[in-house]
Design a protein around this nucleic acid. Structure first.
Lengths: 245, 245
DNA sequence: CTTCTTTGTTGAACGTGTTCAATTAATGGG
DNA sequence: CCCATTAATTGAACACGTTCAACAAAGAAG
């Protein structure tokens, strides 16, 4: 099988020159996004800075929105890289959870400025950038796995019915934090960090209480609900993934 | 004080002719949105069907997105109208909650097709259409009040620390349901109705358990958190509300 | 009625995302 | 080396959202 090369707008794989051009375009785009935000960055400007023609930018990126996917991929990798050592050094569940959440915000800080537009496009269920879309399933899986590691590598033992769903719940929790972060206008998004502080404690306590007999019926219903609905929101079409000529 | 007339794009009030033109434009816009969706509806088409010039449409609506606010207002009124009789006839908390949620989905059904774009623009924190924005505060307050009525008019007595925050929590719950609905691709969004069925039961049980001594510390922390953060996400600027010449 | 101000309306123009037929490099087989 | 096929690249064109200077209609003031 071929090495996992980046895909072009037309669905072909790239090696050598093409890949370099593509990377250059993405680089300039993200640079400009940071400098002046998403809306004030023109495809023409991106092309110009990258030293290519306008049409050429569209050869590598199907649309302006698709440039955002480049950001996602990068941010995600960075997050994983930071979390690795963190999860090796810590066993306390709350600390692990807090660390992973903080890391996500830390690595995204530079892009907080255009996070709004980012989320805006991500919110559209038709968009391949939606966190629920089929196209972002691989990334979602990785993050869910990361959350699983957060729990499993900790000193808290989680029994089976919860254990299966918990990673998905924590993924959802992370999404909520990001949603808050996007709307956070406090200096250096300090409110988000405070929110992480408080909620991670709360969530940890909830997890530890999960086994309590009094909560049993509630926990059971909730888990049943999750299992049932988790995969119902599967993306509908994404029919334009490959464009047969 | 003047009667609460609709506002134009330039912030003036309207009476008579202007109001009629504005209403006609909105009418045609929503009609077209239903017919062919948001993206495939052109401002030029809207203007044409409404029998006005392109520029004139922009005299009454600052942007294409602002037409969506017209939809919001209408949908919201409809929801309130349906909920009124419903809340008078029912005292069971779960039934009341379920009814209000169902009503929201029912009244929105016609627009499910372009709900994605709708949510997309709403998700942008800079947008005045964001449910968290200052511009939608009045509507949010009304829905929160509605949720308060759901609880207060029921046969379940909720004591004070929870009572204050519960309406806001239920508002958030409604937002979650809407988010699911937007992504729901099942026929007639039946999955959303099932989700309402299940979660309303779950939420009701949670409310009833709120007072239990075992959960006390958790409830307290959660409520403290909510009080602290609820109004932190206050919209930042909305500086372009009035355009001083 | 005339004049001034406010309100309503127009059509042309601009900028931007996107598409596409055409053109030039790169690659590989004979 | 030449040719054919694919990969890259171009620039012009299109459609749409949005802006704006200008104009018309409607009231208000004298």
């Amino acid at each position: 099988m071929a090495p996992p090369e980046v895909a072009t707008a037309v669905g072909k794989s790239l090696t050598g020159k093409g890949a370099r051009t593509r990377a250059r375009i993405l680089e300039c785009a993200l640079e400009l996004f940071r400098e002046r935000g998403y809306d004030d960055t023109t495809m023409r400007t991106i092309a110009e800075r990258a030293g290519v023609s306008l049409g050429n930018a569209y050869y590598y990126f199907k649309s302006k929105e698709h440039l955002i996917q480049g950001y996602y991929a990068r941010s995600h990798e960075e997050h994983l890289a930071v979390c690795g050592p963190l999860l090796e050094a810590e066993v306390d569940l709350e600390a692990r959870l807090r660390g992973v959440l903080r890391a996500k915000i830390d690595t995204s800080a530079e892009y907080h400025r255009f996070a709004g537009v980012l989320f805006k496009t991500a919110a559209d269920p038709e968009s391949p950038l939606s966190p629920f879309s089929a196209e972002s399933l691989p990334t979602r899986r990785q993050v869910t796995a990361l959350m699983g590691e957060v729990v499993e590598g900790s000193d808290v033992k989680v029994t089976e019915p919860l254990a299966e769903e918990l990673p998905h719940l924590l993924w959802l929790y992370l999404m909520g934090i990001i949603l808050f972060w996007i709307h956070d206008r406090s200096p250096a998004t300090s409110q988000t960090y405070r929110l992480i502080e408080h909620t991670s404690s709360l969530v940890t306590r909830l997890i530890k209480m999960g086994r309590h007999p009094l909560l049993r019926p509630l926990t059971t219903s909730t888990l049943k609900l999750l299992r049932e609905f988790r995969d119902e929101v599967k993306s509908p079409a994404t029919d334009d993934a490959s464009t047969p000529p």
